[in-house]
Nucleic acid binder design. Structure first.
Lengths: 234, 234
DNA sequence: CGATCTTTGTTGTATATACAAGTTGTGGGT
DNA sequence: ACCCACAACTTGTATATACAACAAAGATCG
């Protein structure tokens, strides 16, 4: 018994779907039927169906049955990591420069993204991430000062804001928006790139239990940074 | 017993991690210990640990034990969907225009991405996706003609390439790269945007069982299209 | 002291069973 | 023809048990 029984059942069902025997939304054999067919216990058959459901291949409804999931939901996924990890994994020499660490009153955009009142006290950190000394990303981050009053006293030469936030406020949720923009003068200067250069811009909000923790604007020159993702559907 | 027992155990462990009782890489109580503590069977305790592992919170090793996963692996994820679905869901009026459907010999870049020899026969489809009549994305797609000889005969006015490929060659893998570029003349003209405008560019390769099926270059004006993602870490 | 064997603990697979909870179709009664 | 109750089926939760595979620490032996 080299391959576990539940894996054999999973492979069998996947085969039926890919060969067209089980079309989209078709009904799949029930746990008891599979248990009979494969001469296993119901719990083993159940595990096969369960795991395929978690993988998005099937969908189940209590009392009704198990069905082939609609295929178009198998959209691909892009993983976004910390830029420090990314540079390190690619063999680059990561360094960062803290440009500013100030407190200010929330503008309309900031207040909206942090879900606080306009004029509330927020910290702003401005950090330049470099790969082999070349600027690759400008990180402008806003943090609700009421939620994390210690943010303004951190030594971001030793720890990145991302790492600090990971420790004190474990993420529960995140949303982000990726777009392409033309950098303005100020940003061009920091990034040491020409004007009219296309930049990749990520606006990211992260939640913790207590609410929105931080709002970050990450800007990178299009010719120095790109997002890569790989996903396996199997 | 409104909430299942295994959920209670999961919540308890998550609480210990978030409160700092269980730091990164710390050892978690074993299945038998949890079963004793919570007065449940080992299989129920097991399920809690199992699900937390699948969620990336814990990591397990046969014979060794269960441990808190390193936190930095909790990077967020961006889901990329078909642009047609995206426009439709946002209440827009989706339309598409087939600009070209030709066959040509693979250039170096195309051959590399499709993992075929330079000069091999490939189909190229050029499609303009529009939202309320405004061009939002230019899709340039290359398909291995040996793998899918029928691609050149499809009616892409009725079905999008994405939909067609989903049917004939179910995806098993995909990789993509997102960057910001300055559009060249030709693309500017198709997209009806000014030169020097920043564009979001996605290069996507999709695999099927048989190999690389298609290589697509998707270009969108930065001011008309952005990628949005939301993820919940539970 | 060092290498090897053994013991113990832990996770992984598998089964048999029981009851709960929800869906669906069937049949009976009005 | 319509509504309602019920039976049959399906998935969800939970338990008790058995054995296999693996890891790490400790005991034994050369």
């Amino acid at each position: 018994m080299t391959t576990p029984k539940f894996t054999q059942i999973k492979d069998h069902i996947r085969g039926q779907i890919e060969s067209g025997v089980l079309p989209e939304l078709a009904r799949v054999a029930s746990e008891n039927e599979l248990a009979d067919q494969f001469q296993v216990s119901r719990m083993t058959a159940r595990r096969a169906l369960q795991e395929l459901t978690e993988e998005g291949v099937l969908s189940r409804a209590k009392g009704a049955g198990t069905f082939v999931a609609s295929f178009k939901s198998q959209s691909s996924v892009l993983q976004i990591r910390s830029i420090k990890d990314e540079i390190n994994e690619n063999g680059g020499d990561y360094s960062a420069q803290l440009l500013q660490l100030t407190s200010l009153e929330a503008s309309e955009e900031i207040a909206k993204n942090l879900q606080i009142a306009i004029g509330s006290n927020v910290f702003q950190s401005l950090i330049l991430h470099k790969n082999n000394g070349l600027p690759v990303q400008l990180e402008q981050r806003f943090v609700d000062a009421d939620l994390l009053p210690e943010y303004g006293e951190q030594d971001f030469h030793r720890i990145t804001p991302h790492e600090y936030l990971s420790k004190v406020a474990p993420l529960t949720e995140a949303s982000q928006e990726i777009s392409a923009v033309v950098a303005n003068n100020e940003i061009c200067e920091y990034l040491q790139t020409s004007e009219h250069n296309a930049c990749l811009q990520i606006k990211r909000r992260t939640w913790s239990r207590a609410g929105v923790v931080s709002f970050a604007i990450l800007t990178s020159p299009g010719d120095r940074y790109r997002l890569g993702g790989h996903s396996v559907f199997n």
